[in-house]
C-alpha cells in the first residue's frame, strides 16, 4: 500500500534542534531577535532534517518539529482558551511550560498546516502530518474552565479534527495523532479517549497513526485495537520487546509502528540489533503489518546520536527485507 516497501521506515516526530536554533530560541524569549529571524532558522533546520532523512533513506518523513517546544504547549499556544500556567518539573531538572485551560478551547486558524506544506515542498517522500491528541492535551494541561474532563477532551477533539481535515486538504497522506497519555486512567477514561479519537479521525481518507508510550500498554490491550486508526506506534525496544508477549495472547489487528530504537539512551544501536528486533516481532506480526521506527521522538538525543541510530534502523530494515526476499 501507499507505494512503500516492506517494513517502511519512519520516525515518531521530533528531532534534536541544532545549537544555532536553541540559541535563537533563547534570544527570542529575551526579545533579542525578531520572530522573522527565528522563523528563518527554523526553516533552515527543517531543510537540514529533510536532507538528512533523504540521505538516511527513510520512507516516511517528518518535519522534525524545529518550531515546537513542547508537544502540548505548542498546540496550547496556538489555540484559543489556553494560557501558560508556568514551569512544572517532569523529572530530574527537566521542566516544561504547563498550559492551563481558562476559557472555551478551539482553533483560531490552522496550526501545523503551513509547516507541513513547507516540509512537503522539500521532498518527494511523504511527510506525516503531526498532531497531539485531545486526551493528551487535556491530561497534560491544568483545567480551570470546564466542569469535567470529558467536556474538555471532546471539545479539543473537534478542534484537532478540523486540523486533521486541513492537513489532508493540504495533501497529507499520513496523519499521526500522538496520545502518550492515553493509558493514564485506563479503566476510567479509555472509552473517552477512544470516543475522542473517533471524532478526530472521522471521515479522513489519510492513513492514520497514533503513537503511545511510557505507561501500562497491557492495561489497555486489546481494547487499544478499537482505536479508529490504521496504525498504532509503540515503544518496544526500551523494555526489550516485552510487549510481544502481550500481543501473542491476543492478535494485533492493526499495523504496528515497531519501536526498535531506544529514544532515551545515548547508546547507538547496531543494524544487527534492529534486524533481531524485527525478526522477533515477526513471531507475532505479519510482515506487511510492520512499520519500523524509534520508540519515541528523538529530540532529547544529539544530532550525531540521532543520525547513528536512524542509520542502524534503516540498515536493519533493509536486511530484514532481504531475508524475506523482498529486498
Amino acid at each position: 500500500m501507499n507505494g512503500l516497501p516492506l517494513f517502511p521506515t519512519t520516525t515518531v516526530g521530533s528531532f534534536p534542534k541544532p545549537p544555532y536554533l536553541l540559541e535563537a530560541r533563547r534570544k527570542r524569549l529575551r526579545g533579542q531577535i525578531e520572530p522573522e529571524q527565528l522563523r528563518q532558522l527554523e526553516e533552515q533546520a527543517t531543510r537540514e532534517w529533510i536532507q538528512r532523512q533523504e540521505e538516511l533513506g527513510l520512507d516516511v518523513f517528518v518535519d522534525g518539529e524545529m518550531y515546537r517546544g513542547d508537544m502540548v504547549a505548542y498546540f496550547a499556544d496556538e489555540m484559543e482558551g489556553f494560557a501558560i500556567a508556568g514551569l512544572v518539573r517532569s523529572y530530574g531538572n527537566r521542566y516544561y511550560p504547563k498550559p492551563v485551560v481558562v476559557g472555551p478551547v478551539g482553533r483560531r486558524r490552522p496550526i501545523t498546516v503551513e509547516w507541513f506544506r513547507f516540509a512537503q515542498s522539500l521532498t518527494g517522500k511523504p511527510v506525516k502530518g503531526m498532531l497531539t491528541g485531545p486526551y493528551t492535551i487535556a491530561e497534560w494541561s491544568f483545567n480551570e474552565y470546564y466542569p469535567t474532563r470529558r467536556e474538555l477532551v471532546l471539545e479539543l477533539a473537534r478542534a484537532i479534527h478540523e486540523e486533521a481535515v486541513d492537513l489532508e486538504r493540504a495533501g497529507a497522506r499520513f496523519i499521526q495523532i500522538d496520545e502518550p497519555a492515553i493509558h493514564t486512567r485506563p479503566d476510567e477514561d479509555f472509552d473517552l479517549a477512544r470516543e475522542a479519537m473517533e471524532i478526530v479521525t472521522d471521515g479522513l481518507s489519510a492513513y492514520t497513526i497514533t503513537h503511545v508510550c511510557y505507561g501500562d500498554v497491557p492495561r489497555i490491550y486489546p481494547r487499544m485495537l478499537d482505536l479508529p486508526v490504521h496504525q498504532i506506534d509503540l515503544a518496544l525496544k526500551n523494555e526489550d520487546f516485552a510487549l510481544l508477549e502481550v500481543f501473542r495472547q491476543h492478535r494485533f489487528t492493526k499495523d504496528i509502528g515497531l519501536g526498535v530504537i531506544d529514544a532515551h539512551s545515548h547508546r547507538v544501536e547496531t543494524a544487527e540489533e534492529v534486524l533481531d528486533g524485527i525478526r522477533r516481532s515477526l513471531e507475532v506480526f505479519e510482515p506487511r503489518q510492520v512499520y519500523v521506527s524509534p520508540d519515541c521522538g528523538l529530540k532529547t538525543r544529539t544530532i550525531d546520536e540521532t543520525v547513528g541510530k536512524l542509520a542502524a534502523m534503516v540498515e536493519g530494515a533493509r536486511r530484514a527485507r532481504e531475508e524475506l526476499g523482498a529486498g
Binding site: 518539573r89 517532569s90 523529572y91 491530561e139 497534560w140 497519555a181 493514564t184 486512567r185 511510557y214 505507561g215 526500551n238 532515551h264
Partner: peptide
C-alpha cells in the same frame, strides 16, 4: 534504572 511514570501524573521517577 530508567524513567517511569509516577502514578497517573505527568511526572516521572527513576
Amino acid at each position: 534504572d530508567g524513567l517511569q511514570r509516577w502514578f497517573d501524573t505527568n511526572v516521572y521517577y527513576r
